[in-house]
Write a protein that binds this DNA or RNA. Structure first.
Lengths: 350, 350
DNA sequence: TTTAGCACTCCTTTCCCTCGAGTGCTAAAC
DNA sequence: GTTTAGCACTCGAGGGAAAGGAGTGCTAAA
């Protein structure tokens, strides 16, 4: 059977109406929405065809129609108007971005939160990019004889610092030498090696130097391990309760647990794809078979990428979410391209 | 009417049973729980008295009894066994604390998360203490001619750093002088003054010095304003759905919004009170009239205090929550007293 | 190919009934 | 005076049965 233009138009009407009203769409409504040029009986014939072809479903014999995953897919691919965000939406997104991103460290988590509030669905955020982070540079700042500040800069451009207490006094004059030692031997290498290298150096050092060195390495290890890339941040979980399909706690349970306990099951995005929409059963994870996910990526530069995803019912408002999410991702990319470019790769520090 | 010992015992049985089972308690159950020394008819007489005195309520004529807020209050004040945490509980709490607190900066938020998982109710965390934070010290580290790292140490012992880009080249030799300038003129003063002081100094400086100075001050302002004290962190919101009284989404709505949107309405603790229990209508906030809150505080030292609260139904397990929360708060206080003492107040840095 | 007409389906809402846990009260026992 | 057995009564929960209605599927005519 052929998918005529009229069938497509009907599918579009059904999908958009169902997205809006969350209840099966009747032939009468469709006839009206199409301007009354055909009768509801004609629509019913077409609807029967569309069900047979697998684009629509009927909850029960005497009910209206709702889109099947296949129907949503066709809608997203062909029928949906790929609209741009309106000026007002753009203004809202920009004002949300305004001044929120001072802390480069927390970009990932922040982005997730903002997206959730922008699209009114739960969202998640994760870093994609370099698989392993190393320390690019150490600095040690004197505080007093029993403590100093360790500053660790990673090659994904995070700068972290912490006050460390020593057990033996350390003269502040020794700190530059220590920092030099660290920068010579402990940059650009992976976590595991940090420990072995430290052990290798141990015999050459007195306790008063070894201790702070070891503390700094320990801190650096924590910084690397705690890197945002390993975390999946989720926010706006409560938004799913606003969706009629998840009013029932038991229905929402699966989604809820994937958004809290099993975050790692949330889909990621293939490289070089700016945005992807996963509809219902297209999702790999069992808990997402009744949900849809829209994922987009943005560049933080220096081969760092951030990923943001939106989770909602299959009945999700794809047009709006896609428009807002891609605008948001583009804005972020632009933002980092302009003001926050990455530091140069080579260190030209003395 | 007098509150006899037997009435108190009955009240205790009713409260604990209701906390456990979440359904009205019958006279028959009480008679059994009290060892069968009296009949259920006797209990019924007593129950009628307790209702009249306002300690118990009856959902409807032919139902069992549940505690009223007044009943919970008496229970908490007089009847509840103020138990210590068991060895096993203590072990669990300690292992949760173990190694989690590296980042002094995020103590507050971490504490909230841990408490929520320890007590299985939603929790919130906020800082209480010094009303205004100032910068104690600045450091500027060279990266390249167009960027440097600003390290800001506040007098509540947070150390924050960020990479800043300059528009004009800055020779790395100038950074120590700049840092010196900052440490001389811009430490120990409030946010508003930072700006005015910067303006006052502007004429004496060339653009190549003024720009990075101004950027650093801007960053310092952000660090101060973004101080955790202004934030209320909430976690474990989904725990409230585990409570039968909040199965209904409409019931949970009020609590949910206070735990997400209107966090500032969550109660804080009077100074010098180690722990406080607020039952139902004792809460000021309307949305908490049907809920109870247990708040405790812990010391981070140097007149910094942290606050953690637990939110649950009035039917909350006060004995367990109170025991675990106070043990947790004490552990935190001890932890900071021992290992993480604050840096000295006077800076003895060159 | 379209459409009016109409029987049919099945969900939703409402009402009523039953069942049972639990009470309140009375009168007798302690 | 206090306790208790006995019993009628109350009220919510659960389970059909019935009514109502939106919407369909099919047939036959336009």
């Amino acid at each position: 059977m052929e998918l005529t233009a009229r069938k497509k138009e009907i599918l579009k009407v059904v999908t958009e109406r169902y997205i809006d009203a969350a209840e099966p769409v009747s032939s009468k409504y469709i006839a009206q929405a199409m301007g009354g040029s055909v009768s509801s009986a004609t629509i019913r014939n077409e609807l029967a065809d569309l069900v047979e072809m697998g684009y629509l479903e009927q909850p029960h014999t005497s009910a209206g129609r709702i889109p099947s995953p296949k129907g949503y897919r066709l809608y997203v691919n062909e029928l949906m108007e790929r609209r741009k965000v309106s000026d007002q939406e753009a203004a809202e997104i920009n004002s949300a971005l305004q001044g929120k991103m001072q802390e480069l460290d927390s970009v990932i988590a922040q982005a997730g939160q903002m997206v959730s509030s922008i699209v009114n669905y739960p969202a998640y955020a994760v870093a994609a990019g370099k698989s392993s982070v190393t320390v690019r540079r150490y600095d040690l700042l004197p505080v007093d004889t029993m403590s100093f500040i360790a500053v660790v800069m990673t090659d994904d451009s995070r700068v972290k610092s912490q006050l460390l207490r020593t057990e033996l006094p350390v003269a502040s004059e020794q700190l530059p030498a220590l920092a030099n030692l660290l920068n010579t031997h402990f940059t650009g290498i992976h976590t595991e090696e940090l420990g072995t290298k430290l052990m290798a150096l141990a015999p050459q050092l007195g306790a008063e130097l070894f201790m702070p060195l070891s503390q700094t390495i320990e801190y650096a290890t924590a910084v690397i391990d705690n890197s945002e890339r390993s975390h999946v941040f989720t926010t706006g979980q409560s938004q799913i309760f606003r969706q009629p399909e998840f009013q029932d706690l038991s229905k929402a349970d699966g989604l809820m647990s994937i958004l809290t306990d099993q975050k790692s099951q949330l889909p990621v995005l293939d490289e070089n794809t700016p945005m992807q929409i996963l509809i219902g059963p297209e999702n790999v994870s069992e808990a997402l078979k009744d949900a849809s996910v829209v994922v987009a990526s943005y560049d933080i530069g220096d081969n760092m990428r951030g990923l943001i995803g939106v989770v909602g019912p299959t009945r999700m408002d794809y047009a709006t979410v896609a428009a807002r999410l891609s605008y948001f991702a583009e804005s972020l990319t632009k933002m980092f391209g302009k003001n926050n470019q990455l530091p140069p790769k080579e260190d030209d520090i003395p």
